[in-house]
């Protein structure tokens, strides 16, 4: 199936960058803030931002259960940074009441690469794409992956290689922000996989 209409969850975060990257791939893009909008998209991007804020707004917007059901029904979803956290099975160093969708069988540590002063850029080699500019902002670190998770890119920050781009079925997650580098290739890989 080719995704005709791709949603960007637009509760909070770097929505505009994802929209412009997706538009460069010639798909129709819809900002998603309501269950009705969610029901009308063929795929969804969950942007970077603050995972606690986006989680809070998913609840108040009535999207929390709808999005969970959509993921279970096979909706292709790609989360970057905060989006990765929201899709992960286990969140370390989060709030005590932090919830997530457990669509990716992995453990992720919030701000695992450090606070803002440690935020960095580094090239990342992505399988099927080649080298992309990796932009890591207070980035989450994937510390453990189950066998069912396909690792498409790793990065070694001096403490061994950690996955930074993964997929499990229709669900994709990245520690970094391909959208901030205005590079559409990773989004293209996600859309091509659908």
């Amino acid at each position: 199936m080719v995704a005709r209409r791709v949603g960007v969850l637009s509760l909070q975060g770097d929505v505009g960058e994802h929209v412009s990257v997706l538009e460069s791939l010639d798909v129709e893009v819809l900002k998603v803030r309501t269950p009705q909008q969610l029901a009308s998209v063929d795929a969804l991007v969950v942007p970077g931002g603050e995972s606690t804020t986006i989680a809070h707004l998913l609840v108040t917007s009535g999207l929390q259960d709808e999005l969970g059901a959509s993921i279970n029904d096979g909706l292709p979803v790609f989360g970057t940074c905060a989006g990765l956290i929201l899709l992960s099975a286990e969140v370390l160093d989060g709030r005590s009441d932090q919830w997530s969708y457990a669509a990716l069988a992995l453990s992720v540590r919030r701000n695992g690469y450090g606070r803002q002063i440690a935020s960095f850029e580094s090239p990342v080699e992505v399988r099927g794409v080649g080298e992309v500019a990796g932009v890591f902002i207070r980035a989450p670190k994937i510390e453990r992956c189950d066998d069912g998770v396909d690792v498409l890119a790793t990065y070694d920050h001096g403490d061994g290689a950690h996955p930074v781009l993964v997929r499990q079925g229709n669900v994709w997650g990245a520690s970094f922000h391909p959208e901030l580098a205005h590079d559409a290739r990773v989004h293209g890989l996600f859309l091509d996989s659908i």
Binding site: A82, S119, F120, S122, I137
Partner: peptide, 27 residues
């Protein structure tokens, strides 16, 4: 830079502006 020599660079404009991008739509 090559992919085998993954040298991280901190404090670049894209990294500094990037956190502001992440705060968009927020309070």
């Amino acid at each position: 830079m090559s992919s085998t020599n993954q040298t991280p660079v901190t404090g670049t404009a894209i990294v500094k502006r990037g956190l502001a991008d992440m705060l968009r739509g927020g309070v």
